[in-house]
């Protein structure tokens, strides 16, 4: 079943971050997940877009189950959640662990932009 998460980049350092119940966290594994039609997801997105000093470019992404955990559906979003595949020692993937493994092994019919709203508009 497809879920949703809210992501953005933090304003002051550009780090990819995820929304978790009122604050932004660095790890995708800690991201809050919503059901596909949950209006709270849109409300969180609208809130994130309206504030000025925390994050830039907030948007909802599709999330799927992977290896008993979760992973963004799109390849692009998995790279954001992991780090660059040419330097495994960089980015969030450096700390390893089961949640990173779930990202590494996730696959499926990913839509590469992963931006739910962009896709809807097409």
């Amino acid at each position: 079943m497809t879920m949703k998460a809210l992501t953005a980049n933090r304003l002051d350092d550009g780090e990819a971050v995820f929304w978790m119940g009122g604050r932004w966290v660095d790890r995708f594994a800690e991201a809050q997940l919503w059901g596909d039609q949950d209006p709270d997801a849109d409300a969180a997105e609208a809130h994130a877009k309206s504030e000025l000093t925390q994050v830039v470019d907030a948007y909802l992404i599709d999330v799927i189950e992977s290896e008993g955990g979760y992973a963004p559906l799109s390849y692009r979003e998995r790279v954001r959640a992991m780090g660059p595949t040419n330097k495994l020692e960089h980015g969030k993937q450096a700390e390893g662990g089961a949640s990173i493994e779930a990202l590494v092994h996730a696959h499926g019919a990913a839509r590469s932009t992963g931006r739910v709203n962009l896709i809807k508009r097409k």
Binding site: N9, G14, A16, L52, V56, D57, R80, G83, H90
Partner: peptide, 21 residues
């Protein structure tokens, strides 16, 4: 706002990419 700042930072070669600026 970011809309106002984005063209300014781009004029200084600063992009926002997947993991950072």
């Amino acid at each position: 706002t970011e809309d106002q700042f984005k063209p300014i930072r781009l004029m200084n070669g600063l992009y926002l990419q997947l993991h950072a600026y």
